[in-house]
Amino acid sequence: MHPLEKVTIIGSGNWGSAIAKIVGTNTACHTDLFEPTVRQWVYEEILDNKKLTDIINEQHENIKYLKGVKLPHNVVAVSDLVEACKDASLLVFVLPHQFIHGVCEKMKGYLRPQARAISLIKGLEITAEGTRLFSEEISHILNIPCAALSGANIANEVALEQFSESTIGCQDIEVDGHIFKNLFNTAYFRVNVIQDHVGVQLCGALKNVVAVGAGFSDGLGYGSNTKAAIIRLGLLEMRKFGQTFFGDAVQTETFFESCGAADLITTCNGGRNRKVAEAFVLTKKPIEQLEEELLNGQKLQGTLTAREVHQFLSARNMQHEFPLFSTVYRIAYEGLSPENIIIDI
């Protein structure tokens, strides 16, 4: 008889809160697999002279990041990271990627033996020297296996139980895949488990670059045909990047999962990357200024990733092999005319 899995969610923003609703509901349903209480590490904030953790635990709602959506009563907000993760066997990481290292270092030594993790952090780090998956960073610091989940998942829509799909990349499909599917799969949030955890995360990063290109197209007033061409060419470059630099670790089928084509379509039709790129063409203001005006200080992932990809490709003298990625970079950072989004690709 295996001990029940003890689940901790690391992070409590918009997406983290939407996921807490799913995880809390599923752990309560699958009492043969999971302990009933789900602890959620919440970065403590004060709202109207009350601690955010107290508000969540009393009102069962994250009024700052997911207002109007009730969380299951078995989700308990905890402000102390060590207390939140103590003896945990399943860790769900859903926090900004820049905090991964510091958070994991503080968690070392407090987890249950044979613990496992899953990263819901989209993307990966790309530098001139190489690439680094966030799941690998978690796995390396904590010395535990780490899967990845990504898909066409706008947090508010998922929280409102509007149907969507997601993809889990997991090396051990039979054991870990079974557990993670039971943790996340619902009637409105359909999960498919595949082995390609690298491709799942790669898609989450590169689709934002394509969305910037789609936004340029929208700003220029081009129609659906043009955007469809940009999406198709972008998907081809995403696949080529994966197979060129990761080889057999990335499977072609992954690009037709929710983490691939579906997330790409969603991001190119909505989201902040498309929105800011459209405004860049219409206002001719710098990207940094538009970030300030439109995103409340958040950074635009698409242009940042475009720059990282450009540095990575330039170091290998391969930028000409990825014309869409390179054109997005040159329009955003080198003053190239936005019209080149269809001329140069």
Rank of each mutant, 00 (worst) to 15 (best):
I63R: 09
Y188E: 15
I345Q: 13
L95E: 08
G68H: 08
R190C: 06
K21V: 09
I10P: 04
L295Q: 13
N74V: 10
V69D: 01
S314D: 07
F180E: 08
P323T: 02
L202N: 02
P286S: 10
T37F: 08
I141P: 10
A211L: 04
G177A: 05
L47I: 15
F255S: 03
T267P: 09
V38G: 10
D218H: 14
Q201K: 06
N62S: 08
G270Y: 10
A332W: 06
I173F: 01
R190A: 11
A115G: 06
E288L: 13
L233M: 15
G242C: 07
Q59M: 13
G16L: 00
L324F: 03
K299Y: 09
V75T: 00
E137H: 09
V175Y: 11
V200A: 02
I231N: 03
I63E: 03
C203H: 04
D196S: 04
L294C: 11
Q114A: 15
I138A: 03
E44S: 09
K21P: 13
L294K: 13
L160M: 14
R132Q: 12
L142R: 05
L236I: 10
K275E: 14
I194T: 05
F245Y: 15
A261L: 15
A88D: 02
A261E: 10
G16M: 00
G11H: 01
A147G: 00
H101E: 11
A332I: 04
A262V: 02
L235F: 08
G123E: 08
I121P: 09
D48V: 01
L142K: 00
A115W: 03
Q298C: 07
N153H: 00
G213Q: 03
I144F: 04
L160D: 09
I100C: 12
L160S: 05
P286V: 10
E161L: 06
L149R: 01
V23C: 03
E339T: 15
A187V: 13
E292N: 14
G13P: 03
R112M: 11
P145W: 00
V193D: 02
V191W: 10
L120C: 14
L71A: 06
D196T: 05
L149K: 04
G234T: 12
L235P: 14
A205I: 02
